[in-house]
């Protein structure tokens, strides 16, 4: 199916002032499109977690929301350092977030597990160059 629209955001590393702005904009756009509220909530969760992961763990990256007639796809691409052991990172409660981030209330080790749980298709690729995540939510 054709891509109807792409929303894109640049996400800065370690910037907690702008953190969450992209996912909040995606949410309000999808809300005005009229996406079902339960589906919207799933998108909001995965989007926010993905954006925060870029802020906390990477050197910066991009967040995209692709709108199709039958699905919403959330994509992230970031620059390094990547995830050495993806399986371990997918474990609930496992976190590599530094204490400075945990003090802000982030880094509880639920990011990736929640992203997987709330998306219908979850794809992740990671190398020392960076991490790409693709999350599909069917409408």
């Amino acid at each position: 199916m054709d891509l109807l629209k792409r929303l894109s955001y640049h996400v800065l590393s370690n910037n907690f002032i702008k953190a969450g702005k992209g996912s909040s904009d995606i949410k309000s756009n999808l809300k005005s499109i009229g996406i079902d509220s339960d589906i919207l909530r799933k998108i909001a969760i995965v989007c926010y977690e993905a954006e925060m992961n870029i802020v906390i763990h990477s050197l910066g990256g991009n967040l995209h929301c692709d709108i199709y007639e039958e699905k919403i796809v959330i994509l992230t691409e970031d620059i390094g350092p990547g995830i050495p052991d993806i399986e371990l990172a997918m474990t609930e409660g496992f976190s590599t977030a530094p204490d400075s981030v945990r003090e802000l209330g982030f880094g509880a080790g639920m990011g990736l597990p929640n992203m997987k749980r709330y998306s219908d298709i979850f794809e992740i690729n990671s190398s020392i160059k960076g991490t790409n995540i693709k999350m599909t939510i069917l409408l």
Partner: peptide, 13 residues
């Protein structure tokens, strides 16, 4: 909802 129409509406707005 018709997603296509809704996206067009948002773009026009």
């Amino acid at each position: 909802i018709n997603i296509k129409q809704a996206v067009e509406r948002i773009d026009k707005i």
